[in-house]
Amino acid sequence: MIMVIKLILSDIDGTILNDNNEVDSDLKQTVKELKNKDIPFVLASARSPKGMLPIAKELGVLNNPIACYNGALVIKDLQNDEYSKILSHELNVEEVKRIIKTVHDKYNNVSINLYSGSDWYAENLDKWVKIESEITNLTPILTDFDKLIENNPVHKILLVSEPDEISVLLNDLERSNYDDSSFYLSKPNYLEITNSQVSKEKALRELTSTYNLSLDQTMTLGDNYNDIPMLKIAGLGVAMENAPTDVKDFADAITEDNNKNGVSKAIKKYVLR
């Protein structure tokens, strides 16, 4: 496979992080080698900016763009409180209100989490919020959602419960004519909602424009359904071995799983060879 990769866009959870939420142990050195070749390594995740900050810091990519909320917010200068926005797509306010009302009225066990800019908001510290807090090492701001929505843009909603309840909720929402919202599962029990214009594909297209590159010069790495759009359009889309079979079907290549440094191995094989 002969191609010249000039930009790499990589998912985080299940991709550069192993099952213990540790970064691929060879990736820091691999990113240094990429930097020497002027090849940006860009992180793309459903996480918030604050949730991505320690990983970007560990890898030394704070000066690169970061695609947060699956591309709903693409920023630079993540280390600064006043980071610069490359791209921002917020959810429709009325649709946010409808979604919250549906959950409150019919799905009492579902945890609602709202993300605005770099901040994570919750109504209370339920068990799902505590689990997410342990994963991300962040603490949400407890607030009244009605007041928050009126005064702040919402970049992402995260709904969490048992997989069976989330499946029913997803079907309910998809039948309810939300024209400006997109629904997808990032885990069997994690339902993510962003503006319908948001995807990692669009983030990749924006990044190629920023760096004046073609899609053929890009490599993407991911492990889940929300990674499919970027795997399909990149010059080289690489799926992790731990990805579901129907995600792998859209990839050009398969690397080892997230517990075996699959990302750094793929970069060495296809980019630094």
Rank of each mutant, 00 (worst) to 15 (best):
L9E: 06
S10E: 05
I16W: 00
I16V: 06
N18F: 07
D26Q: 15
L27W: 01
K28V: 10
Q29I: 13
E33D: 14
N36C: 09
A46V: 07
A46F: 08
A46N: 08
P49A: 00
G51K: 04
P54Q: 07
L59P: 10
N63Y: 14
I66H: 12
I75D: 00
L87F: 12
S88P: 11
E90C: 13
E94K: 13
E95Q: 09
I100E: 03
T102D: 08
T102A: 07
I112P: 06
S118P: 06
D119L: 15
A122I: 08
T136E: 03
T139S: 15
I149F: 07
V154W: 14
E165Q: 12
I166M: 08
S167C: 11
V168H: 12
D172A: 06
S176L: 05
D180W: 12
D180G: 10
D180C: 11
P188D: 06
T194V: 13
K200G: 01
E201A: 14
L213Q: 02
S214C: 05
Q217S: 08
T218H: 00
M219T: 00
M219V: 00
M230I: 02
G235N: 06
A243T: 01
D246Y: 06
D246P: 01
D257K: 07
N258D: 08
N261R: 07
V263I: 09
V263F: 10
K268E: 14
K269A: 10
